[in-house]
Amino acid sequence: MEQTKKVVSVYRELLQEYLRSKDEKVLYQAEQFSRQSIQDGVKPEEIIDAHYQTMSEIIPDMDPRLKDSFKFLIETMIYYGVAYGMFNDIKEQQYSLRNEIDVAANMQNTLLKTEIPASEVLDIGAISVPARQMSGDYYHFVQDTEDNIGVAVADVSGKGIPAAFVMSMIKYAMESYPDNRIYPEMILELLNRVVERNVEPGMFVSMFYGLYEVEQHKFYFATAGHEPGFIYRHRSKTFEEIRGKGLLLGVQKDSDYKRFELDIEPNDIIFLLTDGVTECKVSGRFIEQEEVLDVLYNYVHEPPEKLVENVYKHLERLQDFHLRDDFTLVAIQRKDN
């Protein structure tokens, strides 16, 4: 009530001042006043009432029809005030929701953090950029007791919070496996059971799992319905597709996965990715595989860490900086020795 009185008196002064001077400056002050009133939660009908009161002081013998018309106008404005109050409530709710999502996204980053292992024989680069706040993409590295390096790249169907939950589940399942050499197809079989039991029907995860064996320079891998990767052969300067075969995680209780292997030569680069890379849309059409490889080829001379960064920037530019899907790219290069 105190507030309303103050509003009425400020409004009265401004209106009187304007009627006297017709000064543009006062109009500007009125603008400021309305901004302040909105902040203070003054309702529209209160302003009209202030207008009415001021005018009846200035023109005591105001035409009764005009007087009634103000009453009418005030009634008409009441729901605008209510709607405005609701808008404020929603604004507040949205603000607190956004805070919650920020907290969740931060937690996701902390929970899913993975260190890129330092290796005598490999250089590794990895980048993962969410299209929205929370990512459904994931990569993970492990190094076993013999210094072999395991790498997982995964994409959970759907996005946002449900996908993030599933990702955390997978990460913790993976971390509970022993540290000694464990082959990709075994990991996928174990994970499939975890995912199948714990996600709703229709939700699924694609995952590529690779194990780089550092003595013989063999790359063992298995895929659970994941986008094929590529290997860049340094000697021939050409790309080969890293194609395996295996069912998505979470579709069927007992899925068998097959182990594939590749021999890696010095300076060869293994590229693992998610469909955010291959399904990038350039001027209304999807990019062709050759175009993706052309982009990769532009940067193969760079160290993997910079390479993935630059490929991302390049594809982001091609899509006018509008990422449609989470983007993940991992590059693993055998050192020149």
Partner: peptide, 15 residues
């Protein structure tokens, strides 16, 4: 079709 479509057909398969 994108991966949401796959989700629909996986649900149909399970059902």
């Amino acid at each position: 079709m994108d991966s949401t479509g796959l989700g629909v057909f996986i649900s149909a398969l399970k059902t």
